[in-house]
Amino acid sequence: MDKKRVLYNIGAPVLGLALFIGIWYALAQAIGISLFLPTPGETLVRFFKLLGEKKFYVAVGNTLLRTILSFSAAFLLACVFAVLSAKFRFFGKVFSPFAVVLRVLPTISVILLVFLLIRSRFAAYVIIFLVIFPMQYKSVLDAIERVDPLLKEMTEAYRFSWQKKVFSFYIPQMTPALLTGMSITLSFTVKLCVAAEVLSYVGKSVGRYMQQAYASLETETLLAWTIAAVLLGFLLEGLLLLLKKMIVRRYHGK
């Protein structure tokens, strides 16, 4: 890698991060009360202290599991509905108002409506599902519709079996676009999951500990949990992008 590329790929993000930390530090100094805004140093000390506590791993594990389960359920169902909508146009037309309403519904309305109906730990799952499902549905449907029509015709002309069509044609064609969409939605799901945990008072979760810190005005603890949530989002997004690279390399040889 030449010097210019190193500077561009590594130096620029590091500079951005340094600027962010610098602004945070300056703001904390200007406010002057660590109860309201602790310095990055104070927050990091608290974060590393959290890393030594068992509850940290339990909470992060639970939030991760909740995120993955809700996301996977939304994705699988979105695939089913998108395939049905693409295959049967009438079904797509009937389902489109539901998808549109769910997609444009303000997240806070979804949260409040779910709380009116469900007041248990499952409320968080339902909220995530209802917000993520329409986004996933649109993303899968778009990916299906973007498949090259000439190649599609070719599979028809050569009378490919349905298995061959799906595994050798549709999946390789759709995967890059799908995984890009999924990586964005997945980090959003982490944010949504934490918010739902706060609002539905889910025990042993990142959201619950954030609320505990907020109510006691333990701002450095609140920010330490925030760092955990951000890292969780980065981790999931990174894993999906890695998966995308692997799949693209396998199917497209790039």
Partner: peptide
């Protein structure tokens, strides 16, 4: 209350 019940309203102090 704080550790096991995860109270958010009872401060450790």
């Amino acid at each position: 209350l704080i550790e096991e019940m995860e109270s958010t309203q009872v401060p450790a102090t």
